[in-house]
Design a protein around this nucleic acid. Structure first.
Lengths: 129, 129
DNA sequence: GTGCCTGCAAATGTTTTGCAAACCT
DNA sequence: AGGTTTGCAAAACATTTGCAGGCAC
């Protein structure tokens, strides 16, 4: 096990994701942290986002469109992404974990974490068209 | 509405995804098509994959790791990806669509297609460690 | 002091775009 | 003929990596 140190940058990256609370991507986290710590580099943001995901302090949300997004809410919940403006919001749905785990077991895979993303069109973009 | 023509390349891209049936990424589709049509370009593969997704003839599977993958099976089903070898296989689980749609409705989003991806470790990679 | 972490720059990898020629209808 | 589509190359993005110096412990 590698020693893991506490750094200002790591804290700031975590807090940025938490405060932005709208599933920011790395770019948005970078800009947020830059406000209070202008010398931070993009690589540091990526490195810390990945470390935090590994430590299960953050959730990586894979979306079918655009860069990966991050979420500080670790409890199980799902996401819907607008195919036009790419915005992501939470939805109040959790899969049936028993059925899910059984289905996984059949494949021989060891399941880790489910990630449900739905494509949709948000109210704003519906009105624009 | 834009006119859409039938081309050999489009057919080959679709058939490649269908025949590979293991959720290939663009690179793998490119190599498969190259076998019978060596002059095809990567850009053509990407353009046609995107067109086919738009026409709902293919499904884009957003994975949390690595390039996007494509699936010719349009009927609802979910996927599990190995975090080590990145392989993707189908799982026999479908979300409860009624609950899911209700949850979406609360957000005001118009739902299109759910896409559940689970992270796991495949049997082969479990044995390697 | 040791060795992980940072910031910079450069590399890598994926996907898109511009353009002239080729092709479908 | 006219407008899409192709193939190539280059551009645009997203993310990772190498390295010298800085910082946590």
């Amino acid at each position: 096990m590698i020693e893991r140190r506490q750094t200002i940058q790591r804290d700031l990256v975590y807090k940025a994701v938490e405060e932005l609370h709208n599933h920011p991507n790395a770019q948005e986290v970078y800009l947020k942290v830059k406000e209070t710590h202008p010398r931070i580099g993009m690589a540091t943001v990526y490195r810390n986002l990945n470390l935090l995901v590994e430590e299960e302090k953050l959730l990586k949300v894979p979306v079918s469109d655009g860069p990966d997004r991050f979420d500080a809410t670790i409890i199980e919940h799902c996401h819907i992404q607008c195919i036009k403006c790419k915005r992501v919001v939470d939805i109040d749905y959790t899969p049936n974990m028993v059925k899910l785990m059984n289905a996984c077991a059949k494949t021989g895979y060891t399941s880790i974490s489910p990630n449900l993303v739905i494509s949709g069109i948000c109210p704003e973009c519906q009105n624009k068209n």
